[in-house]
């Protein structure tokens, strides 16, 4: 079994869990699965989770990654929490628009905007 090294940087401040990717490509299935599990653990650990996912290091993702984000979003909503996405590269944002997932997710240009949007 390969060593379970993290693919995320996770920090909490003022009740908001901020998640940053350490990899530029979120396409390979094993990584996506691991990333999803790591974030879902954070969601599970909170009563009403407030999660900010920062995409500033990401320049590629796949539909499997979108699927994992949807699973996270569904779980956050089940717990009356809030999920925000920020700093998405223009080419990747276009994928959200094409799939209409920009309607499902709360997407902000910057971390600061995303943080200010939590209620």
């Amino acid at each position: 079994m390969a060593e379970q090294d993290t693919r995320l940087s996770i920090g909490t401040n003022d009740g908001v869990t901020r998640v940053e990717f350490l990899e530029r490509n979120i396409v390979d299935e094993a990584s996506i699965q691991q990333i999803g599990e790591e974030i879902l653990r954070e969601v599970d650990a909170s009563v009403m989770p407030k999660i900010l996912i920062d995409f500033k290091n990401v320049d590629h993702l796949s539909s499997a990654a979108l699927g994992q984000l949807i699973t996270i979003n569904n779980k956050v909503r089940q717990k009356d929490g809030q999920l925000r996405l920020a700093n998405i590269d223009a080419q990747i944002y276009e994928v959200f628009v094409i799939t209409r997932l920009n309607k499902l997710f709360h997407i902000h240009e910057t971390d600061d905007e995303a943080l200010a949007s939590f209620q």
Binding site: L66, G67, I70, N73, I98, K103
Partner: peptide, 21 residues
């Protein structure tokens, strides 16, 4: 069609649409 409102929250089914786009 994964872009229909009723399919937006489904985690799969976007691959073919992305290829075509």
């Amino acid at each position: 069609d994964p872009t229909l409102d009723e399919n937006l929250e489904k985690p799969s089914g976007r691959g073919v649409m992305l290829m075509r786009t």
